[in-house]
Protein backbone atom coordinates (compact mmCIF):
# COMPACT_ATOMS: atom_id res chain seq x y z
CA UNK A 1 0.00 0.00 0.00
CA UNK A 2 1.48 3.23 -1.05
CA UNK A 3 0.36 6.66 -0.15
CA UNK A 4 2.11 9.86 -1.00
CA UNK A 5 3.03 10.39 2.61
CA UNK A 6 4.48 6.93 2.97
CA UNK A 7 7.96 8.17 2.19
CA UNK A 8 11.02 6.73 3.92
CA UNK A 9 11.31 8.13 7.41
CA UNK A 10 14.83 9.39 6.86
CA UNK A 11 13.84 11.81 4.14
CA UNK A 12 11.36 13.53 6.42
CA UNK A 13 14.19 14.63 8.62
CA UNK A 14 16.83 15.12 5.97
CA UNK A 15 19.33 17.82 6.74
CA UNK A 16 18.67 20.72 4.32
CA UNK A 17 22.40 21.32 3.98
CA UNK A 18 22.91 17.77 2.87
CA UNK A 19 21.11 18.49 -0.34
CA UNK A 20 23.54 21.23 -1.27
CA UNK A 21 26.62 19.32 -0.10
CA UNK A 22 26.56 16.97 -3.03
CA UNK A 23 25.58 13.50 -4.07
CA UNK A 24 27.62 11.82 -1.43
CA UNK A 25 25.37 13.05 1.32
CA UNK A 26 22.20 12.93 -0.64
CA UNK A 27 20.85 10.08 1.52
CA UNK A 28 21.26 12.41 4.51
CA UNK A 29 21.45 11.28 8.09
CA UNK A 30 18.55 9.76 9.93
CA UNK A 31 17.37 11.15 13.25
CA UNK A 32 18.95 8.15 14.90
CA UNK A 33 22.32 8.86 13.34
CA UNK A 34 22.16 12.49 14.36
CA UNK A 35 21.17 11.53 17.87
CA UNK A 36 23.96 9.00 18.11
CA UNK A 37 26.49 11.65 17.09
CA UNK A 38 25.15 14.05 19.66
CA UNK A 39 25.11 11.35 22.28
CA UNK A 40 28.73 10.42 21.60
CA UNK A 41 29.76 13.95 22.38
CA UNK A 42 27.88 13.83 25.72
CA UNK A 43 30.57 12.42 28.02
CA UNK A 44 28.33 12.15 31.08
CA UNK A 45 25.61 10.34 29.18
CA UNK A 46 28.16 8.00 27.65
CA UNK A 47 29.60 7.20 31.06
CA UNK A 48 26.11 6.41 32.31
CA UNK A 49 25.48 4.23 29.31
CA UNK A 50 28.70 2.29 29.79
CA UNK A 51 27.93 1.67 33.45
CA UNK A 52 24.43 0.50 32.51
CA UNK A 53 25.87 -1.91 29.95
CA UNK A 54 28.38 -3.14 32.49
CA UNK A 55 25.63 -3.72 35.08
CA UNK A 56 23.53 -5.67 32.61
CA UNK A 57 26.57 -7.77 31.76
CA UNK A 58 27.28 -8.40 35.44
CA UNK A 59 23.68 -9.36 36.10
CA UNK A 60 23.64 -11.75 33.16
CA UNK A 61 26.92 -13.36 34.20
CA UNK A 62 26.17 -13.47 37.94
CA UNK A 63 26.27 -17.27 38.28
CA UNK A 64 29.44 -17.41 36.21
CA UNK A 65 31.11 -14.74 38.35
CA UNK A 66 30.24 -16.44 41.61
CA UNK A 67 31.48 -19.81 40.43
CA UNK A 68 34.61 -18.12 39.28
CA UNK A 69 35.29 -16.61 42.68
CA UNK A 70 34.09 -19.74 44.44
CA UNK A 71 31.63 -18.00 46.77
CA UNK A 72 27.98 -19.03 46.38
CA UNK A 73 25.64 -16.20 47.45
CA UNK A 74 23.76 -18.14 50.10
CA UNK A 75 26.55 -20.07 51.75
CA UNK A 76 27.14 -19.33 55.44
CA UNK A 77 30.64 -19.06 56.83
CA UNK A 78 30.20 -18.34 60.51
CA UNK A 79 33.85 -19.07 61.23
CA UNK A 80 34.57 -15.48 60.14
CA UNK A 81 32.06 -13.98 62.57
CA UNK A 82 32.38 -12.84 66.16
CA UNK A 83 29.55 -14.66 67.97
CA UNK A 84 29.25 -11.93 70.60
CA UNK A 85 28.53 -8.92 68.40
CA UNK A 86 27.84 -10.59 65.07
CA UNK A 87 30.57 -8.45 63.50
CA UNK A 88 33.26 -9.66 61.12
CA UNK A 89 36.47 -10.79 62.81
CA UNK A 90 39.84 -9.36 61.89
CA UNK A 91 41.32 -12.83 62.28
CA UNK A 92 39.02 -15.87 62.38
CA UNK A 93 41.62 -17.85 64.33
CA UNK A 94 42.11 -15.24 67.03
CA UNK A 95 38.96 -13.58 68.37
CA UNK A 96 41.01 -11.35 70.70
CA UNK A 97 42.09 -9.23 67.73
CA UNK A 98 38.61 -7.77 67.54
CA UNK A 99 36.47 -6.74 64.59
CA UNK A 100 37.67 -5.89 61.13
CA UNK A 101 36.68 -2.30 60.32
CA UNK A 102 36.72 -3.24 56.61
CA UNK A 103 34.23 -6.04 57.07
CA UNK A 104 36.54 -8.84 55.96
CA UNK A 105 37.43 -7.44 52.55
CA UNK A 106 40.11 -9.70 51.08
CA UNK A 107 41.15 -11.44 47.89
CA UNK A 108 38.70 -14.19 48.73
CA UNK A 109 35.82 -11.87 49.66
CA UNK A 110 36.10 -8.88 47.35
CA UNK A 111 33.51 -6.81 49.19
CA UNK A 112 33.80 -8.47 52.58
CA UNK A 113 31.19 -10.66 54.24
CA UNK A 114 27.84 -10.19 55.93
CA UNK A 115 27.71 -9.92 59.71
CA UNK A 116 26.08 -12.79 61.64
CA UNK A 117 26.23 -15.48 58.98
CA UNK A 118 29.29 -14.62 56.92
CA UNK A 119 27.82 -14.79 53.43
CA UNK A 120 29.98 -13.32 50.68
CA UNK A 121 28.88 -9.76 49.88
CA UNK A 122 30.31 -9.58 46.37
CA UNK A 123 28.33 -12.58 45.30
CA UNK A 124 25.18 -11.26 46.94
CA UNK A 125 25.56 -7.85 45.32
CA UNK A 126 26.03 -9.46 41.92
CA UNK A 127 23.00 -11.68 42.38
CA UNK A 128 21.10 -8.73 43.80
CA UNK A 129 21.76 -6.87 40.54
CA UNK A 130 19.99 -9.69 38.71
CA UNK A 131 16.88 -9.35 40.83
CA UNK A 132 16.83 -5.56 40.79
CA UNK A 133 17.36 -5.23 37.06
CA UNK A 134 14.99 -8.05 36.19
CA UNK A 135 12.13 -6.65 38.23
CA UNK A 136 12.77 -3.06 37.17
CA UNK A 137 13.08 -3.88 33.47
CA UNK A 138 10.08 -6.15 33.21
CA UNK A 139 8.00 -3.74 35.28
CA UNK A 140 9.07 -0.91 32.98
CA UNK A 141 8.03 -2.94 29.94
CA UNK A 142 4.61 -3.43 31.51
CA UNK A 143 4.38 0.32 32.21
CA UNK A 144 5.36 1.15 28.65
CA UNK A 145 2.95 -1.29 27.11
CA UNK A 146 -0.07 -0.15 29.09
CA UNK A 147 0.98 3.51 29.01
CA UNK A 148 1.50 3.61 25.26
CA UNK A 149 -1.73 1.85 24.32
CA UNK A 150 -3.89 3.94 26.61
CA UNK A 151 -1.95 7.14 25.94
CA UNK A 152 -2.36 6.84 22.18
CA UNK A 153 -6.03 5.95 22.48
CA UNK A 154 -6.67 8.94 24.74
CA UNK A 155 -4.68 11.33 22.60
CA UNK A 156 -5.91 10.16 19.24
CA UNK A 157 -9.60 9.71 19.88
CA UNK A 158 -10.07 12.46 22.46
CA UNK A 159 -13.60 13.11 23.71
CA UNK A 160 -15.06 10.70 26.18
CA UNK A 161 -12.25 8.16 25.60
CA UNK A 162 -9.76 10.79 26.71
CA UNK A 163 -11.90 11.72 29.69
CA UNK A 164 -12.26 8.15 30.91
CA UNK A 165 -8.59 7.32 30.47
CA UNK A 166 -7.57 10.66 31.98
CA UNK A 167 -9.61 10.00 35.11
CA UNK A 168 -8.21 6.49 35.30
CA UNK A 169 -4.71 7.96 35.23
CA UNK A 170 -5.61 10.34 38.05
CA UNK A 171 -6.93 7.46 40.11
CA UNK A 172 -3.87 5.32 39.54
CA UNK A 173 -1.56 8.20 40.38
CA UNK A 174 -3.45 8.93 43.58
CA UNK A 175 -3.31 5.30 44.68
CA UNK A 176 -1.35 4.68 47.91
CA UNK A 177 0.92 2.26 46.13
CA UNK A 178 3.25 1.28 48.97
CA UNK A 179 0.41 0.45 51.33
CA UNK A 180 -1.37 -1.45 48.60
CA UNK A 181 1.77 -3.44 47.88
CA UNK A 182 2.21 -4.36 51.53
CA UNK A 183 -1.39 -5.47 51.82
CA UNK A 184 -1.38 -7.37 48.54
CA UNK A 185 1.73 -9.39 49.28
CA UNK A 186 0.19 -10.53 52.55
CA UNK A 187 -3.05 -11.60 50.90
CA UNK A 188 -1.98 -13.45 47.76
CA UNK A 189 -1.68 -17.12 48.66
CA UNK A 190 1.21 -19.21 47.50
CA UNK A 191 0.50 -20.98 44.22
CA UNK A 192 -1.72 -18.20 42.89
CA UNK A 193 -1.59 -17.78 39.07
CA UNK A 194 0.37 -21.02 38.90
CA UNK A 195 3.42 -19.33 40.41
CA UNK A 196 5.17 -20.31 43.59
CA UNK A 197 7.63 -18.80 46.03
CA UNK A 198 9.91 -16.17 44.58
CA UNK A 199 8.54 -16.50 41.06
CA UNK A 200 5.22 -15.42 42.51
CA UNK A 201 6.85 -12.61 44.46
CA UNK A 202 8.65 -11.36 41.37
CA UNK A 203 5.39 -11.58 39.47
CA UNK A 204 3.57 -9.62 42.12
CA UNK A 205 6.28 -6.97 42.26
CA UNK A 206 6.26 -6.58 38.49
CA UNK A 207 2.50 -6.33 38.51
CA UNK A 208 2.39 -3.75 41.29
CA UNK A 209 5.14 -1.57 39.90
CA UNK A 210 4.13 -1.93 36.28
CA UNK A 211 0.41 -1.69 36.69
CA UNK A 212 0.46 1.41 38.86
CA UNK A 213 3.19 3.42 37.20
CA UNK A 214 1.86 3.41 33.63
CA UNK A 215 0.14 6.82 33.84
CA UNK A 216 3.54 8.57 33.81
CA UNK A 217 4.31 7.15 30.37
CA UNK A 218 0.64 7.36 29.45
CA UNK A 219 0.50 11.12 29.96
CA UNK A 220 3.61 11.75 27.91
CA UNK A 221 2.36 9.57 25.07
CA UNK A 222 -1.03 11.23 25.15
CA UNK A 223 0.53 14.68 24.95
CA UNK A 224 2.76 13.69 22.04
CA UNK A 225 -0.14 12.07 20.24
CA UNK A 226 -2.20 15.23 20.63
CA UNK A 227 0.43 17.29 18.84
CA UNK A 228 1.28 14.62 16.29
CA UNK A 229 -2.27 14.15 15.13
CA UNK A 230 -2.48 17.84 14.17
CA UNK A 231 0.69 17.62 12.09
CA UNK A 232 0.54 17.98 8.33
CA UNK A 233 1.56 14.46 7.43
CA UNK A 234 -1.21 13.03 9.59
CA UNK A 235 -3.70 15.50 8.18
CA UNK A 236 -2.58 14.55 4.69
CA UNK A 237 -2.85 10.87 5.42
CA UNK A 238 -6.31 11.35 6.83
CA UNK A 239 -7.47 13.47 3.87
CA UNK A 240 -6.42 10.63 1.60
CA UNK A 241 -8.77 8.33 3.48
CA UNK A 242 -6.33 6.39 5.59
CA UNK A 243 -7.95 4.38 8.35
CA UNK A 244 -7.45 5.17 12.02
CA UNK A 245 -5.46 1.97 12.39
CA UNK A 246 -3.11 3.01 9.64
CA UNK A 247 -2.65 6.48 11.08
CA UNK A 248 -1.99 5.22 14.58
CA UNK A 249 0.36 2.41 13.64
CA UNK A 250 2.12 3.83 10.61
CA UNK A 251 2.11 7.57 11.21
CA UNK A 252 1.95 8.24 14.92
CA UNK A 253 3.59 5.29 16.66
CA UNK A 254 6.91 5.49 14.77
CA UNK A 255 7.22 9.05 15.94
CA UNK A 256 6.53 8.05 19.53
CA UNK A 257 9.34 5.55 19.77
CA UNK A 258 11.90 8.15 20.71
CA UNK A 259 10.10 9.70 23.68
CA UNK A 260 9.04 6.26 24.88
CA UNK A 261 12.59 4.99 24.74
CA UNK A 262 13.87 8.01 26.64
CA UNK A 263 11.23 7.93 29.34
CA UNK A 264 11.48 4.21 29.91
CA UNK A 265 15.19 4.63 30.50
CA UNK A 266 14.29 7.22 33.09
CA UNK A 267 11.59 4.99 34.56
CA UNK A 268 13.91 2.06 35.16
CA UNK A 269 15.82 3.75 38.02
CA UNK A 270 12.54 4.78 39.68
CA UNK A 271 11.44 1.17 39.51
CA UNK A 272 14.77 -0.07 40.88
CA UNK A 273 14.26 2.22 43.86
CA UNK A 274 10.71 1.04 44.25
CA UNK A 275 11.77 -2.60 44.24
CA UNK A 276 14.47 -1.78 46.79
CA UNK A 277 11.93 0.02 48.97
CA UNK A 278 9.57 -2.96 48.88
CA UNK A 279 12.38 -5.38 49.70
CA UNK A 280 13.47 -3.01 52.45
CA UNK A 281 9.98 -3.15 53.89
CA UNK A 282 10.08 -6.91 53.67
CA UNK A 283 7.35 -7.33 51.07
CA UNK A 284 9.77 -7.96 48.24
CA UNK A 285 11.65 -11.10 47.35
CA UNK A 286 11.88 -13.84 49.98
CA UNK A 287 15.19 -14.61 51.62
CA UNK A 288 17.73 -16.03 51.16
CA UNK A 289 17.61 -14.69 47.57
CA UNK A 290 19.73 -11.55 47.51
CA UNK A 291 18.19 -8.15 46.81
CA UNK A 292 19.76 -4.78 47.39
CA UNK A 293 16.86 -3.40 49.37
CA UNK A 294 16.72 -6.50 51.53
CA UNK A 295 20.46 -6.30 52.20
CA UNK A 296 20.09 -2.67 53.19
CA UNK A 297 17.32 -3.52 55.61
CA UNK A 298 19.41 -6.24 57.18
CA UNK A 299 22.39 -3.92 57.39
CA UNK A 300 20.52 -1.36 59.47
CA UNK A 301 21.11 -3.36 62.62
CA UNK A 302 24.83 -3.39 62.14
CA UNK A 303 25.75 0.06 60.93
CA UNK A 304 27.90 0.74 63.98
CA UNK A 305 29.93 -2.47 63.85
CA UNK A 306 29.83 -3.25 60.13
CA UNK A 307 29.45 0.02 58.17
CA UNK A 308 30.58 -1.70 54.97
CA UNK A 309 27.40 -3.75 55.04
CA UNK A 310 25.31 -0.58 54.74
CA UNK A 311 27.63 1.15 52.31
CA UNK A 312 27.95 -1.58 49.71
CA UNK A 313 24.29 -2.23 48.82
CA UNK A 314 23.63 1.50 49.32
CA UNK A 315 26.31 2.36 46.79
CA UNK A 316 25.10 -0.33 44.41
CA UNK A 317 21.62 1.21 44.37
CA UNK A 318 23.05 4.70 44.15
CA UNK A 319 25.38 3.95 41.24
CA UNK A 320 22.76 2.03 39.29
CA UNK A 321 20.10 4.69 39.68
CA UNK A 322 22.54 7.45 38.85
CA UNK A 323 23.86 5.63 35.78
CA UNK A 324 20.37 5.02 34.40
CA UNK A 325 19.39 8.61 35.04
CA UNK A 326 22.47 10.02 33.33
CA UNK A 327 22.01 7.65 30.45
CA UNK A 328 18.35 8.60 30.13
CA UNK A 329 19.14 12.32 30.31
CA UNK A 330 21.81 11.88 27.69
CA UNK A 331 19.38 10.06 25.40
CA UNK A 332 16.78 12.76 25.80
CA UNK A 333 19.25 15.52 25.03
CA UNK A 334 20.49 13.64 22.00
CA UNK A 335 17.03 13.05 20.54
CA UNK A 336 15.50 16.33 21.52
CA UNK A 337 18.09 19.05 22.13
CA UNK A 338 15.42 21.69 22.72
CA UNK A 339 14.29 20.05 25.95
CA UNK A 340 17.63 20.69 27.62
CA UNK A 341 17.54 24.44 27.02
Amino acid sequence: MTTPMDVPESSQHADPEAVTAGAENAAGRSLRQIAWQRFRRDKVGMAGGIVVLFLILVALCAPLLTTWFGQPPNQFDQRLIDPLTGGVLRDPDDTSRGLDPWGGISAQHLLGVEPVNGRDLFSRIVHGARTSLLVATVATLVCVLIGTVLGVLAGYFGGWVDTVIGRAMDIFLAFPLLLFAIALVGVIPDGAFGLEGNNLRIGVLVFIIGFFNWPYIGRIVRGQTLTLKEREFVEASRSLGASSGHIVFREILPNLITPILVYSTLLIPTNILFEAALSFLGVGINPPMATWGGMLENALRFYTIAPHFVLIPGLAIFITVLAFNLFGDGLRDAFDPRSSD
Binding site: L273, A276, A277, S279, L281, G293, L296, P307, L311, G314
Partner: peptide
Protein backbone atom coordinates in the same frame (compact mmCIF):
# COMPACT_ATOMS: atom_id res chain seq x y z
CA UNK B 1 11.72 0.04 62.15
CA UNK B 2 10.26 0.50 58.74
CA UNK B 3 10.96 3.89 57.33
CA UNK B 4 10.81 4.42 53.61
CA UNK B 5 13.89 3.12 51.93
CA UNK B 6 15.01 5.70 49.53
CA UNK B 7 15.63 8.57 51.90
CA UNK B 8 16.89 6.30 54.60
CA UNK B 9 19.64 4.92 52.46
CA UNK B 10 21.30 8.27 52.25
CA UNK B 11 20.79 9.09 55.92
CA UNK B 12 22.34 5.78 56.80
CA UNK B 13 25.31 6.35 54.62
CA UNK B 14 25.90 9.61 56.39
CA UNK B 15 25.35 8.07 59.80
CA UNK B 16 27.72 5.25 59.02
CA UNK B 17 30.38 7.65 57.86
CA UNK B 18 29.97 9.83 60.90
CA UNK B 19 30.72 6.84 63.06
CA UNK B 20 29.33 6.32 66.51
Amino acid sequence: TAPAAAGTALTLLLAACGGA
